[in-house]
Write a protein that binds this DNA or RNA. Structure first.
Lengths: 194, 194, 194, 194
DNA sequence: TATGAATGAGCGTTCATTCAT
DNA sequence: TATGAATGAACGCTCATTCAT
């Protein structure tokens, strides 16, 4: 039942927003009564926290795996991008709720989630810094800002991507990795060498 | 008074969210009563629509200017990025409300706003397509997806940028233009040529 | 309307108790809607606080008058008893709510009311102490405990007195003053021996 | 388990009030579940009734003992006062619940309890009447009203007495018996004149 | 142009109670 | 004897909106 509630509420929160979704909406979608909801969750905000935690904890777990198993920083970055994008295949609703509804957590809970987000981003910064030092990435990059640019590219896709549409997450991830690594300019360095 | 209401409500919507901000909050922040609000706006949703319109219409107007006055597509793209980023200097709150609160419009209003957003993005796609044809951008880029990548970079900055912080919008815009055009890889093409 | 709400809610609180009386009960008894209630009172607890304050503040005001205008301590005590008992003529419901429903105030509000009650009682203690020193009261009396005995006699009457019954407040007050001053024992009745 | 439930619920009812104490509170304090509660008590109100009955029945039993074994009416009255006051040593919580929470019984149950209370009071009236006839008490006393004055003195102590405080129930009872029998006035003190 | 009183629908939450196991 | 899942009615409270003045 906890799973059932999570599943249905994520769908509803995605479509209508957290504040606009009532407990009544949630329990109606399952076919139980409000009392049942409160048997499983102490509050609506608690349910939202659980949704946030599931999303970000899973990302962090997979990020750790990437950092431990891959040694090329370029590859680490590419896998990080793919991690976020591929997640849309199964958890696009979770992600959308996660990115949009952080203000509806209590101050304390929001702090916890933001710390976890920051942990994820700090790892991206580390990858970039390491890549610069190793010569894989351009020296002039500002790791802090570029980490947010990279995450902007990936996270923004949650705003528009349709998992049931024509574009596959695999293609999107590949194109975005290419964009992030190589940029848009044609024969950039070649002009220099040319 | 219409301006006063817009100004204060944007601040409140940014901080607390549209649904979490009551008409009472808004009129209290101005020092008038609820009746006054309804003299100037037919509904809370109407006010939100006005905020959306002001934001997106201003962007579209400035985008048209860019398209008309600049001929290099690379420059058109760079100026588009700068347009969005520089806007944060004065209208970061508007932008945040615009990106977050579109679900609180009526279906009809949301459609209108989404069409305008789409118009803006179609222009970005056009710039990219033109740039590819002209040889300024890499041929392998997928204009649709890349337009969303570029907008991801710029729009995401509304999530984290602090106009009162150390980073200037000018520096951020320059770094992001560089990132978008050149990517991250060091001596990219040289490997190819080498 | 504030008066109307107070009047009706006091009656309801008296009959059914604070917790057992709903806002709906109150507004139904007046013929308005719940919104109206909350236009005049911030919360149900706030309303209760107002009822408490009106009761105790009135008592304190009248007690001050007694202390200022009467010089015999025996008379001061008698008038204090009469003050409380006579109040039942017009405010028996207020008193019953006041004595029974103090636990339904917030900690902060309850503290304020208890301080005021204590102020009233300290004045009774003072009257007794003064009366002992002046020789009007027996030396062996313990002012603290006796103040509570006196207040027990008077306040308990709120439990059972029926303002519409056969006994008048005047008679009751006189008999209680006599009881408090002279006690029950016959042999101690000097008038009898005298 | 019935005892366990009574014991814990009395403490909770005393502290928070009957309505403000949930079945969940009660079973949590014991460490069982709600089902268990309903195995032993048919309803929350039934539990309250049991608490009331235990308190008043014990008082009545002890009162009968007093009436049967003591022949001086002055002593009967003194012992009645001591009975109520001494009870606070072990059952102050029961008493507080008994005096405060009678409105939360069903009409039928409340009637039963009130009849028993009335039985207790009628016995006090009888003591006073007998004492007047025997010449132990002053002729001018109104037995009905004075019985309520006496009970006011004793019962009110449940409002403020702290069993863990400095005052012992024995001292309090003695002082209250003295107050009730002899009153407060000094000049009536025949011992002084004697 | 602005006020303030009033509405009414809805919300998150609580809780005594039931009942199959 | 005890559990735990589920119910459903009610509660305190909020709030966008209306409207006479």
């Amino acid at each position: 039942m906890r799973e059932e509630i999570i599943k249905n509420s994520v769908k509803l929160f995605e479509r209508k927003g957290f504040s606009e979704t009532s407990i009544q909406d949630i329990v109606d979608s399952i076919g139980v009564t409000k009392g049942t909801f409160y048997y499983y969750y102490a509050s609506k905000e608690n349910l939202l926290m659980e949704i946030h935690l599931r999303y970000i904890d899973n990302l962090l777990k997979n990020q750790r795996l990437i950092l431990q198993t891959i040694h090329s920083f370029r590859e680490q970055l590419a896998e990080t991008v793919k991690l976020i994008i591929h997640d849309m295949k199964y958890r696009v609703s979770h992600g959308r709720v996660h990115f949009r509804e952080i203000n509806n957590l209590t101050a304390e809970h929001a702090k916890k989630i933001k710390e976890k987000r920051e942990e994820f981003r700090l790892n991206v910064i580390q990858i970039i810094s390491n890549g610069i030092q190793s010569g894989e990435f351009r020296k002039s990059l500002h790791p802090q800002m570029i980490s947010l640019a990279v995450l902007g590219v990936t996270n923004w896709s949650y705003h528009w991507f349709n998992p049931d549409g024509d574009i596959s997450v695999e293609e999107l991830a590949n194109r975005y990795v290419d964009f992030i690594l190589n940029g848009m300019i044609a024969s950039r360095d070649c002009e220099d060498v040319g």
